[in-house]
Each structure stands twice: as C-alpha cells, then as structure tokens.
Simulated scan of single mutants.
Amino acid sequence: MKQLNFSAIGTGGIFKTIQFMINKNKRAKLACVVDINEESAKKWGEKLNVPHCCSTDEFYEEHCEDIDAVYVATPHFTHTAMLDDAIDNNINVFIEKPLTTNLEDAVRIVNKAEKAGVKIGVDFQNRYNPQAVNMARAAQEGYLGKIMYGTVNIPWKRTQKYYDVAWRSKWDTAGGGTLITHAIHMIDILIWALGNPISVTGKFATRKHEIEVEDVGMGIIEFESGAIAQVLSSAANDPGAGTHLSIFGEKGNVIFGGSILSQTRWQRIKRKRYPLNIKGLPLHYYKIVDAFISYVMDNKPFNATGRDALPITAVIEAIYKSSRTGKEVKIDTSIF
C-alpha cells in the first residue's frame, strides 16, 4: 500500500495530537519534522526516528524530495508564507486554522494552489465530528425546515498566561483574538450548515487581558437563505463554560456543544444520522487526517478545503471591519 509522506512544520501544541493520528494511519507516515526551535526539532526527530531541521529553507533544499504533504502548525502570521512555499514546491498542505489572517491572502493562496494542482486542507476537525456533521447535513437538506436563525456562544476563560505567548496578543501576529482563535471553529460549522454569508455587523472589545487583540467579540451574520445568526465569543469569562451552537428551523431545532463538543439535542424532530464511513480510531482528528489522505491520494471529496475556509475568513474579517467602522459590511460571495 502506498503511503502519504508528511513533514510537520511546527512541533508545539496540537502537533503532538496530529503526529499521533498520522502515524496511527496505515496509509501515512510522518517522515520529517521542522521547527525553528532546534531543541524541539531534534527531540521529535529522535523520538520519531525521522530527519529534522530548523528552517523551511533547509527542509525544501534537502528533505522535501519524497514528501507528499506538509502539516503546518505554526503561529498565524506565518501561514501565508508557509502556504506559498509549499505551493511553489508542489507539495500539498494540511494546515491549522486560520488559513491566513486576512481574506486577500486567503483568496490569492486558494487560487494559486488550485492553478498549481496543490491540495489544501484546513484542520476544521468538527467537520468530521459526527454530532456536527448530523446537524449541518440536516440543515443543508432542509430537515429542519426553513432556517430562522442560529446562535454561537463561546464563554471561555483564558488567563493572562495564555496570552503571554507573545504572538497571540497582537494584531500583526495573531490576526485577532478570541474570534479568529476560538470562535472560528463554530463559525465554520455555522457557515457549513447555513450557506454563504452576505453581510455582517460586529463589535469587539478588550475587557480583561493586557493584550492588543479582542477578548470579547460579537457578530450578526445574514445569509443568502435569509437566515440570520448571532456569534458571541469571549476569553474573559470567569468561570468559563461550554461552547454551544444552535440552529432553529421551522420544523425543529438542533443544539450542539458541551465541554468536548460531543452532544446534540434535537427538538421537535427525530435525530438524524449521516455516517462518515471512515474506519479507524473514533476521533475527530483521526477522521479528518484520514479524509485528507483520501483527498490527496484518491481525489475523494474533503469537507475542509482551502476554498471552504474563504467564507469563514470573510466573516471574521468583516466583524473586525464592522466594529472599527461602525457600519454593516457586505460580503462578496463570488470569491467563494
């Protein structure tokens, strides 16, 4: 069986989970690790018994010949350069969110990748969470009836220590605060369920932490279907609470969330299931990695492509713009 050879760029945080999922998949292997932190690169290279290097220049010059895809888990502000480098070297990309920190770069990257025949996947793992899949598919096919509105509520607690990782606290390096870092996953599922957004009104503020970016953000989104949705994301709550995404239709409602996003409540309608048909570990991260492998190797449909990330990027950017200008922001759906 042919395997998809990955190189990881960035070995902190979520990398530990994704490298495990790659190496647990019989159709893939992690063949190289890259990190500007020499100690971390060496540690993981030795642990996984693979080559390691401390710069992407070194990787592309010396180690990329047999690599099919890079997994990118680096700070937000580096994503555009990481994507450009991979596309220029004709290597597919599986990248942590956000795709990029602004819509202009995101559109350019997606168009460039498609023209080059390079596939981009974004780690929106809830698109392979069975509970989220059931809710989104039910809304898409009209099982809930005409959608009236949706809500996203993310009342999280983040300490100052969380933002003392310097790049997270600044606009230039993070691209934003709780909206682009935390709410992005639920905005993703909301858009997946309800379709293209056409206008946004938003407000953000910094209420608690010593940071440039927002720790409270709100948005009202209008969709082509006529549905509207409210988004609230906070990193300033104490105590924090669980995330919830709710969709209210004329025939019934679905409430998705919980502390580990593993619960849905179906109101006035019977629960409906849409099997993913992915074998292996019953974990969202495993499923999205496996689906990305199939996307690259077998050209099978993938739920979280670079193009799928465009409306998400557009909405978050529009919330920021609306807050700064005090005006509603229209979204050009032709770029999606």
Rank of each mutant, 00 (worst) to 15 (best):
D35R: 00
I184A: 10
L190G: 07
Y162Q: 03
I319K: 06
S234D: 04
S169E: 05
V122M: 03
C64N: 09
A235Y: 03
D172T: 12
T80P: 02
K146W: 06
A227C: 09
V70T: 15
D66V: 07
V107N: 06
A139F: 13
K330T: 13
D238L: 07
R271W: 04
T206F: 03
A132W: 09
A314K: 06
H63M: 06
K119V: 09
Y285Q: 12
K29A: 05
P98R: 00
L190E: 09
F94S: 04
V118R: 00
V152A: 04
G249C: 10
L281E: 13
G280Q: 03
K330S: 11
A8V: 08
Y149F: 15
Q160S: 13
V110K: 01
N111V: 01
S225G: 12
N153L: 11
K43A: 14
I95M: 01
N153S: 13
R137A: 09
M297Q: 09
D88C: 00
T313F: 02
P130T: 14
Y320K: 01
M218G: 08
L83S: 06
I36Y: 03
K272C: 10
Y143V: 07
V254W: 10
S7E: 02
A138H: 02
G150P: 04
A304D: 04
Y286H: 11
N49V: 04
V216L: 12
K327I: 04
A28D: 05
G10E: 04
D84F: 00
D188N: 14
P311F: 14
V72Y: 15
Y143E: 09
E214T: 09
T264E: 11
I180W: 11
N25Y: 03
F6C: 01
N126A: 01
Q125P: 02
K24C: 14
F256C: 01
I221T: 06
T333P: 00
T80M: 04
A205D: 13
C32N: 14
I247V: 15
H185E: 05
D57W: 09
V329H: 10
I9A: 01
D308T: 12
K112A: 00
A86P: 03
A304L: 06
V289P: 04
G45E: 06
R207Y: 10
F204D: 02
K16W: 06
D88R: 00
V70Q: 06
I120A: 07
E214Y: 11
I91D: 00
G177E: 11
V329C: 07
A106K: 02
D298Y: 14
S40Q: 14
I198M: 03
K279I: 12
R271L: 05
K321P: 11
F77R: 00
R271E: 15
R268Y: 15
G252L: 06
I191H: 03
V213W: 00
E58N: 13
K270T: 15
P301W: 08
N129T: 04
H209C: 05
G13R: 12
F94M: 05
P98F: 04
N23H: 11
A304R: 04
I278K: 00
Y71L: 15
T100C: 10
W171G: 01
K119A: 07
C54G: 11
H185S: 10
A314N: 03
V118I: 07
A8I: 07
S259D: 13
K330E: 13
V70W: 02
L245M: 10
A136P: 06
Y320W: 08
F223R: 00
I67P: 07
E328M: 12
A314E: 09
